[in-house]
Design a protein around this nucleic acid. Structure first.
Lengths: 159, 159
DNA sequence: CAAATATACGTAGTCAACTACATAAATTAA
DNA sequence: TTAATTTATGTAGTTGACTACGTATATTTG
């Protein structure tokens, strides 16, 4: 395999490599939705999918669930509200909270997407099902980092 | 292992997961350099490391090498020039080309970083050396995608 | 129960990549 | 040897995430 300098630097550039692969997959994701004639952006996925599974959530709990900072979620919600895919109501008990849910249009879109997801899941399984499984590797690394951070580990090697 | 909805959605959210892991590692990377008293930003790594290994390159060939679009490289180069870590000269044969090289200060910085890199490599190896090795998984997936794109594979499953 | 603290949400601005487009120089073709 | 095409670089503006900070409401504590 031909190697450029960055690939050859291996572990040093792992963050760059992850980023690159993520971008590549996201771009192809967009193309797949387009090819199936569905007006959907991959970045919407975490919010919409979570609401699909959990029906109603506040802004912050939604952010926690998808692992985003809450301002990122807010800007996605604004966009989704403009698309009329979600709607929000005030929590009657805790009035600080804004409860988010899918609209009928949103539910319909997600239902229409199920067959596309199946295809995506199959294609992704095909891609990741190599000797070292990427999804499993990510899960394992995230679990390892939860135990002890990267910084903490690096410092342990310091003389 | 406790699972949130996105993790549970697995393959669908792989791009999101890669992104998140990349960010996390990049942030800790910055902290590691700081902890070692080195004034260095992880985003500089691809450019500087490539110049370290290849000495002189034009803007576009450097971009290709690190896998960035050339405007991204240009803005990094501007920053690095301000830091006096790189310098550029005109190619005498092809006057369109701007040749980039490390300054003495740049070379010195990179030399000082070698011990930090060793620590980073060790810590990264520790993190990625789980049952499914992340670096190997990335390499395998990138090779698989080169053979046949994600989009192409997805379309093959379409009825 | 008043004060201090914590939580929920929002806005503003930043960051590190990108795409789209423009210009100039080099190369190829008519 | 002009004309057309390709290549190299640059600028402007976008994107999708972030942090910092402010305000309002809830909760906890003295």
């Amino acid at each position: 395999m031909e190697q450029n300098v960055i690939d050859a630097s291996g572990l040093l550039a792992i963050s760059t490599r992850l980023q690159r692969l993520s971008d590549q997959i996201r771009k192809d994701g967009l193309l797949i939705y387009k090819a199936f004639g569905i007006d959907f952006q991959p970045k919407w996925f975490p919010v919409l999918y979570t609401l699909y599974k959990k029906s109603t959530m506040s802004v912050v709990s939604l952010s926690d669930e998808i692992g985003y900072a809450h301002p990122s979620t807010i800007s996605l919600l604004k966009e989704l509200e403009k698309e009329k895919l979600i709607r929000s109501t005030k929590d009657k008990i805790d009035t600080r909270k804004r409860l988010i849910e899918l609209t009928e249009k949103g539910k319909e879109l997600l239902a229409n997407m199920e067959p596309v997801w199946e295809v995506i899941i199959k294609a992704t399984a095909e891609i990741t099902n190599t000797e070292n499984n990427l999804m499993k590797a990510i899960n394992e690394v995230e679990a390892t980092l939860k135990e002890k951070s990267f910084l903490h580990r690096a410092e342990a090697y310091r003389k």
